Structure formats: C-alpha cells, structure tokens
Computed example of a mutant assay.
Amino acid sequence: MRCLPLFCLLLAMPGANALVLLTEDYPPFNMLEDGRVSGISTQILREAVNRAGLSAQFDLLPWARSLALAASRSDTCVYSAVRSAKRESQFKWIGPLVDDKIALFALTGSAIRLDSVADAKQYKVGGYLADAYGDYVERQGVTLDRAPADRHNLPKLMSGRIDLWVAGVISGAYKANREGYQGEVRVVITMGNPGDTQMWLACNPGMSDALFQKLDNAVQSVLQDGTAAGFAARYR
C-alpha cells in the first residue's frame, strides 16, 4: 500500500525520546553483521541504552553524512568519532569508547620503509573524506588521495593506485582479513597520541542535559565494570 509522503516520513522517524545513533563501516568497532549494526562500539552503546532505559535507532551511513546529521539534528549522535580540536565545539562528548592507533599500511611485499610520517610525502597515500586519522596525517605535511569512503582504499592499494593506506592498526588489519586480503598488508609505521586515536560518541549540542547525563552515566558504567572489555574480547 502506498502512503502520502508526510505519513511515510512520520513512519520512518524514531519515536518520542528515541536517540538516533549514526556510524560508518569501521570494523571491528562499527559494522554490519547479519544485516544489523554491530561491532565493539555498537555493543557498548546498545548495552548503555538498555541500562539507561532509553530507545535508540542505529544506522550505518557514509562517514561524512553521519557527522553532518549528528551536528545538525537534536537527539542524534555519531560514533566512533575522534575528539579533535576541529570537532570539539560541534558536539557533546561521551567516552572514550575505544582506541585504535593510527597507521600507514603497505602491501606485504612492498619495499617501503618509513622512519617518520613525513617520509611518506614521496608516496601516494590513500585516505577518505572527513576522517580524523587522515586529517592527522595531512597535518604532518602528507598529501592524501581521499576516497568518498574507506571501502575504496584496499582495492586501490591492491591495484597499485596508492602506495600507502591510512587506517587504524586494529581496524585496518580487521578490514583486510574480512575482505580476503589476510597476510597481504602490513603496518609500516604507527603514530598519534591518545587524544588523536581515542574514539567517542559525539552527540548534538542541542541534546538536553538530562538525556545526555543519563546516557553518559550508562556508557561509563559499561566501560568501567568490564562489560566493554568483554565485547572487545569477542573480536580478537
């Protein structure tokens, strides 16, 4: 049965007081498993939402769109987001949920060796739009070839269209294994301090203080009582 546009929109909207939690494909922290948004960060947040007695809609979108929607819509959050200086005032922050060291990956058979990130300037380095890890590498003076989404970078690395790929140490290796490239990529160099590599839940600044505090308290309880560590252990 067809419905009028406004009615369809109302049906698609979450219920009153429901949160919208947006993310990207960034395994093992956030990803689709059996058609459902899952991963370490997602499991932490699902548990926190339950403990807080809230309801939430989880959606996986391109990263730049997730960030933009969370910055513009109340009761909407985005994860797993690096808490960078550029983003600090755009959101209310909960976490950190997880940590993933920044790395440059090359093909296992590549002869590339780097003593510093700056040495990567001579190579073609792949990243993706709105990614804070890519922003960090660019601040070191390295020009990036930015793809619309990170899923494009592994095929580009395999085909030689890029020489190096910016990714998290954990996430990069997980993605390579998932996409059938187990043993075909290696970490050339790692970088970044905790503030550059920790990932958070970033909520719209218009979220009410009461709702934010309830969610924050629940997330902290999941992080502190060992539950989050148990989620992480499932993906090792």
Results as ranks from 00 to 15, higher is better:
Ser55Ile: 10
Leu67Phe: 05
Ser55Ala: 13
Leu9Asn: 07
Val20Met: 15
Ala71Val: 00
Glu47Thr: 03
Asn17Trp: 08
Pro28Gln: 05
Leu19Thr: 11
Phe29Ser: 02
Pro14Thr: 13
Arg51Glu: 05
Phe7Val: 15
Ala18Thr: 12
Arg36Gln: 07
Leu10Lys: 08
Ser55Asp: 12
Thr23Lys: 07
Leu11Gln: 09
Arg51Lys: 09
Gly39Leu: 05
Leu10Glu: 11
Val49Trp: 01
Glu47Lys: 05
Ser72Asn: 12
Ser66Gly: 15
Gly35Met: 03
Ser55Thr: 14
Phe58Val: 05
Leu22Ser: 12
Trp63Leu: 10
Gln43Asn: 10
Asp34Glu: 08
Ser38Gly: 01
Val49Asn: 06
Leu9Arg: 12
Pro28Phe: 06
Ala48Glu: 01
Leu61Asp: 06
Gly39Val: 02
Asn30Lys: 00
Ala71Ile: 06
Ala18Leu: 08
Thr23Trp: 08
Ser72Leu: 11
Leu60Ser: 02
Ala16Thr: 10
Phe7Glu: 14
Asp75Glu: 15
Phe7Met: 14
Leu10Tyr: 07
Leu22Phe: 11
Gln57Asp: 15
Leu60Cys: 05
Asp34Ser: 09
Glu47Ser: 03
Asn30Trp: 03
Arg73Met: 14
Asp34Ile: 02
Ala52Phe: 03
Asp75Trp: 12
Gly15Phe: 08
Asp25Ser: 12
Val20Cys: 13
Ser74Arg: 15
Thr42Tyr: 02
Thr23His: 07
Glu47Leu: 00
Gly15Arg: 05
Asp34Met: 08
Leu19Gly: 09
Ser66Pro: 02
Ser41Lys: 00
Pro62Gln: 08
Leu10Ala: 14
Ser41Ile: 02
Glu47Val: 02
Glu33Asn: 02
Gly53His: 03
Pro27Gln: 06
Ser74Glu: 15
Ala16Leu: 12
Gly53Gln: 03
Leu32Asp: 02
Ile40Met: 02
Thr42Phe: 00
Ile44Pro: 03
Arg46Gly: 07
Pro27Trp: 01
